[in-house]
Every structure is written in C-alpha cells, then in structure tokens.
Nucleic acid binder design. Structure first.
Lengths: 147, 147
DNA sequence: GCTGACGTAACTGTAATTGTTACAGCAGGC
DNA sequence: GCCTGCTGTAACAATTACAGTTACGTCAGC
C-alpha cells in the first residue's frame, strides 16, 4: 500500500519526550529526537507541529526552547496520533468516476464507501485502545542487547 | 496515507464478472470491465492476474477468451482480495534503523511491531466478514438515477 | 492461417513521502 | 542591546508507488 512511517515516528517522538521528562528534563529538542529516530530534525519538527495542532504537545521558542507533552502519556492514544498525522482514508475509490450507465459502475462507490467506513471505524477503535503509556512500557520491555 | 484503489477496482471487477455470469454469459473481457471501471484494460488484466494467482478467477485464451470466477461470490471475501492484491503491511517502520544506543531507539521497533500486528489482525478479521456476494448486493441496492 | 483477447514488458505522468538546506523569528542570558 | 540556540517554515531534490498507455508475443478455436 506504500505505507508510510508517520505514525511510527510520531509515536517514537512522543515516547522519547515522555521518557525524557520522567528523567527530570523540561523540554526535548528536535535534534535529540531526530538522533534517536535516525532522521532529520526538520522531519521531527514537521510531525510535532501536527501533534501540537492536535493539542498533544507544546513547544517553546527562544533560549531553552524545545518540546514538551501537553498531556500525560496515559491520556494519549494511538488514535489521537493517527488522526493528527494521517488525514486521508485507508482505501481509495476509483481515480476516474466509473461508468454511471453500468449497474455495477453506478453502485460500486456507495457500496464500497459504506463497507470501508465500517472497517475504518473498527481500525479507529483498535488504535484508541493503545495508549502511549503502553507504547513506552513495551519499548522499555524490549530485551537489552548484551555487551 | 497515499491509499491506493487496488482493492476497490479488484472488488469492482469481481462483482462485474459475477453479475455478468448470472446473466448467462460464460466469460467477461478485460475490455468490458475496464469500460465499467473507467480505466485501462491492462490495469484490469494486471489485477485479475493477481486474483488468478490467488485462485479466485480463471482466464481462457484463444477465441472466446476472457475471465470467469473460480469460486462463487459468496465464498470470496474482501480478505481474499486484499491478500491477493496488497502485499505490504499497513504501517511502516523507520526508514533508517533508529539509534540502538538509545533506549527508545532500541525498543521502539519491536514495540510497534507487536502493536501493529494486533491491529492488522483485527483488520483482516473485518475484511473476512464481507463477502463479494454482499458487495454485489450493496451495489444493486444503490438508488437508481431518475431519468 | 485469421481473429480476438490474454499476458507482460516497458515507458510515462503524477503524487506522496522523506531528506536536506536555508533562513527568518523568538526569548532569555550576558 | 546583542548573542545564542532552537523553533517554524519554505523550497527543493531523491526516491518510490500507482495508474495509465503503447506495443507485441501468445494462445485457441473457427
């Protein structure tokens, strides 16, 4: 489907900020997060900007600038992140509108629309069941690399 | 997500063939289906080729060539079509592997992997609940355009 | 051998994602 | 009042996938 990594990177960033704050720091910089995620700081700032628009994080400017959580990790779900970061639907319709003179061409879009809506609703429900708190817990539960 | 229309077009093609066969015809051509879906016959042949590999349709060559269902519409589910037509996962991991020296960078991929697997399993379950028979029923239930 | 459609390669256009550079703007410290 | 470090955002390149299109070899029945 040519899936993208936006949800993954956004969850990574939130988990990173959350852990960093638990260690006593006030704000995290896009530079630090980008290093952990092995990507470019601008990519992180873009994603965090969308999360801020959704009210999940806050940013400070000036000296001592950076990013902090607007809500606790336990109150943020993957659905919140998904909706902030993925605008479009899961499945697309025909590019060109099908032949309306054909029975199938005429009825296929409303039919699939209805089916897709139900499926996306289920997906949302599943995403809503996973909090970022659980994500961080799973992250920390990963087996340590033996040196 | 940059969603594609492959599942939609494949379902369209199967519903079209199914209806056409119920009207007494033996095989449908990619040309006819492409006209209904308002796309190119090659696009249809490519998709139907994948459905054939999955055992959902059959094709004849030579004179009187075309496509026919290998199984009844009531025994084909959207999951069958989805698996035939969409190879990859729903969500992607990081492009570059994250910093393994960072706790989050190290644990994020197994954590998200596990979460994503559960979600995709639910998606599959939902897709499996919809038969192509139901799709065709919904298609035919669409309100007629008044002339 | 003629015909009509499949099977598939090859190429193009378009769009999305990601990475990257560049630079203006802000806020606190000196 | 200027310096500094980071945000905010524009702009562009590289890569990739999807969809559309053309072209042509292949097959099977007449």
């Amino acid at each position: 489907m040519s899936a993208n990594s936006r949800l993954t990177i956004a969850a990574h960033a939130l988990a990173w900020i959350g852990l960093y704050q638990r260690q006593g720091h006030e704000v995290a910089t896009s530079e630090q997060i980008a290093t952990s995620a092995n990507t470019n700081p601008v990519v992180i700032r873009r994603l965090l900007g969308e999360l801020r628009r959704a009210g999940l994080v806050e940013s400070r400017r000036g000296v001592g600038a950076g990013w902090s959580l607007a809500r606790g990790l336990e109150s943020i779900t993957l659905l919140d992140v998904y909706e902030a970061v993925e605008p479009g639907p899961l499945f697309a319709m025909h590019r060109a509108t099908p032949d309306q003179g054909c029975v199938v061409g005429h009825g296929i879009q409303p039919a699939m629309q209805g089916i897709y809506e139900g499926i996306e609703e289920t997906l949302r429900h599943e995403l809503a069941r996973v909090t970022l708190e659980k994500v961080l817990r799973d992250v920390l539960a990963a087996p340590r690399q033996p040196l």
